[in-house]
Design a protein around this nucleic acid. Structure first.
Lengths: 109, 109
DNA sequence: AATACACTTAACCATATGGTTAAGTATAGA
DNA sequence: TCTATACTTAACCATATGGTTAAGTGTATT
């Protein structure tokens, strides 16, 4: 099960490592979009975007609702939470750093 | 300069998408380590780990201090901050979600 | 019934990735 | 000075990635 989590992280970070996919995530952050809507801003084929969508879905960053012939895509917070979760492990470093800074600042010697 | 930031994000997320590299980051989180120390836990050649270290360095996740023939590696918070920064854009969604939950819970109708 | 639309999937291609072994570089120790 | 140590770099390989075009699937329109 550790394996599972590891692979899920692989997928999320891998998904976020591509600028097109990050742009799609940002677009989805605002509101639900169809595959076609998502594709138009990009200088690449619909087929290429379609593959990105599949990847985002598999990484747990997106869900899809099919209505007739159009695919409505929504942001899935699961993937983002997973990434955040891993990174939050390091928040203590930021805190520690801030603590040290506070110490230095408050030194009255 | 947007391009620059984008590429930096590509590199950070790409670096974090590999389990070996994440493990190295975790190891560095505890304390400074030499390249050799970092390599021993893994079932792969030192050369392979060396390439991972180079990648982590380029992604801004690690720095290196060479003393004689040994390379001392340290965590570089820059890369982690960059990743956190991008993800923190979405924190408002978590907040919003929590707000909505709070609303629902507090409904007295 | 025929055709346009909104997609996905398949086949293909060039380049990137993650590993290997072998060779190279530079310092430390005998 | 010779050899061991602590690495990196080079050459290579198999598989993954990110794009293409062409074909396929299913729904809407006329």
């Amino acid at each position: 099960m550790v394996k599972y989590r590891e692979q899920a992280l692989d997928q999320v970070f891998q998904a976020l490592s591509d600028p097109t996919r990050r742009a799609i995530v940002r677009a989805l952050a605002k509101r639900e979009r169809t595959a076609g809507e998502l594709a138009t801003p990009f200088d690449m084929s619909l087929a290429a975007v379609s593959k990105h969508l599949k990847l985002l879905e598999e990484a747990g960053l997106m869900t899809r609702r099919i209505e007739g012939r159009t695919h409505y895509c929504r942001l899935n917070l699961g993937g983002l939470e997973r990434a955040q979760g891993w990174l939050s492990f390091y928040e203590r470093f930021w805190s520690e750093r801030l603590d040290k800074l506070a110490e230095i600042v408050s030194e009255d010697g």
